[in-house]
Every structure is written in C-alpha cells, then in structure tokens.
Design a protein around this nucleic acid. Sequence first.
DNA 1: CAGATGATTTGTGTAGCACCAACCATTTAT
DNA 2: ATAAATGGTTGGTGCTACACAAATCATCTG
Lengths: 163, 163
Amino acid sequence: MTAGPVDQTERRSGALLQFVARRMRIRSESVLAPLGLRPRHLVALTVLRDADGISQQGLASSLQLDGTNVVGLLNELESAGLIERRRAPEDRRRHVVRLTRNGAKRLNEAEYALAGAEDEVLGALGPAERDTLYDLLRRAARDTPVTCAEAAGCTEEDRPESY
Amino acid sequence: MTAGPVDQTERRSGALLQFVARRMRIRSESVLAPLGLRPRHLVALTVLRDADGISQQGLASSLQLDGTNVVGLLNELESAGLIERRRAPEDRRRHVVRLTRNGAKRLNEAEYALAGAEDEVLGALGPAERDTLYDLLRRAARDTPVTCAEAAGCTEEDRPESY
DNA sequence: CAGATGATTTGTGTAGCACCAACCATTTAT
DNA sequence: ATAAATGGTTGGTGCTACACAAATCATCTG
C-alpha cells in the first residue's frame, strides 16, 4: 500500500461553521448593541439586501424561522425605520418587504463597525482569504437549491418535493 | 479619482456566517439525533480532535462557553464514552480532556452522516470550493490570536490583557 | 496555614426560538 | 355568492441553550 493516507477525515464544515459563527456572534453583540441592533437583525437585513422585495413567508423560509417570529422581527426593524412593508399589488394579502434607504445605510454602518469583531475572529486569515470566505458564504447563502421553494415567489409548479 | 465604484459595501462575513451556520445546524440536528448527538456535541468533539489534551477551562474558553456548562456538556460526552477526563499529572486540580478512540470514531461517522446536510446547505459550492471553505474555517478556528489566553495552557506570562 | 485555582453541583434567570389557536383581509375555487 | 384556502398578525405556552451566582471539594502556591 504505497498509497497515501487516503483522506483520513471527513472534512465537514458544519461544526466549524457553528464554532466560528458563535465566536463572531458573541463579539458582534457588543458591537451592535450601541447601534440598537442584535445579530439576528443584521442577518435579516443582510438577507433583505439581496432578496429585496421578498414576501414574509419567503423571508421566513430563507431565514429558516417560524413565520410568527418573523412578524416580530420585522416589527422591530420596521419601527426602527430600517425596513418597510407594502402590500403586494398582485396579491394584496402578501407583504413585500423592503430595505429602506435608512436601513441600507444602517446596515452598512453596522458592517463597518464590525471590522474589529471580524479582526478578532478571522485574525488568522489575510485580506484575500477573508474575501474568499465572504464570497463563498455569500454564494452558499444565495444560490440554495431550495431557493425556489423558499423564495415563495414561485408560480405554482414549484418543486416536485424531490428533496 | 477616476476610480470606479470604490468598493460600495463592507463585505463582512458575520451575518453570512450566522445565516449559513443556522441552516447547517437545523439540518444537522435531524441527522445527528439518531446518533444520540446534538450539534454542540459535534462542535466540542471537533475542537477536541484538534486541541487534544486541553483543560476544561481551555475548552470553555475555546468554545466561548461558561465553565459550568462545559461540565454538563462533558458529562454527556463522557457517559457516552466519547471523551475521557484524566487528572493532569503536573497539576492535579486540572482535568485533561481527551477524545477516546470511540469518540474519534463516532465523530468521523457523524461527519460522514452529515454529507447530505452539507449538500443541501453548501449546494451552490463545488467540491474544490467546499474544500477551500473548510480550510479557511479550520484555520480561523485554530489559529486565533487569542489562542494562548484561551488555551489555558500558557505558562504564566500569558498575555498582558492587551486585547 | 491561608489563600487562590480547577472542577463540580445546584440553583435562577433570560433570550431565541417552535408551535398552537384565533383572527383579519384577501384571493381562489365551487 | 359562498366556501375554502392563504398571508399576515396577535397572544400564549413551552423548550433549550445558555449566562451567572453560590457553595463545595481537591489541589496548588505563597
């Protein structure tokens, strides 16, 4: 058996994601608190920046959060003037959720403020590597195979529940 | 300044980490449940695989978890035979925490079982990209600038609480 | 010997959820 | 038009994962 170690371990990113995300969240909390935000607000705003005009169900599905909790989360963001809910013209039951101009601004400010937290948690990575990480996470966050079913914008023939 | 759009956004990975980690955690739960494990067990085991022979305080610091909760977590893992606590010979107050052979095996099995979950969450990334992600997260998880203070193995002149 | 320190146990409290039920407003099916 | 389904909202319950405090024991160190 001249062959090498044959890829001993499984190299799953799951636990590492939990690990790094927790550290980041803990540090983020103290940075965001003075801005009147909490980590999950940032997550929601970040999702909204990409999926602007999403429905609340779409948001719930994207955030993997129960619908009733999304209501509360959006209430907070709305009363802070960071997002707005409009009724969808083509189906007035639905709410179209949008980042307000102020919301986009605050999101950017918050991200700016998080530089220190990121430095602490991703200190081992250089600028180019952090960039790569950001891009990978962004793509993983956006183009999820379940996106269609989640986005709640699908016409009707959505998915044959194949997964 | 003929320069272009000047790097509009801040590109912080924090929120994306929360987002992707949450999705991964939710899927992991159902995969791990039949194995008698929960996500945080996996995280602890993963840390232990790298930092074998760490003290409980070191573990608490690494996991950013309160010491008392680490006790409970380790109790679970120990009674499942996945880790063991030995007294440190040079300071018998301390416990040296080690992955048992069985623990390493179960960890690997769990990671193997998590393939499907990872496929769902990281579906947008190709194999090479997932590998890159794994490596970046791993390095971020290991070589933290605060490692010394956290590892609790530092001689004594640890850190001048500079951070 | 007198503290400090690592681990453990036993609380108590809180935040972030999931889940249920009831309720509008609106849309779609009959 | 009336019934049923759907999106959103509210209020409530309960669970889990923590943080934090206090008391105990074993051990180390001054």
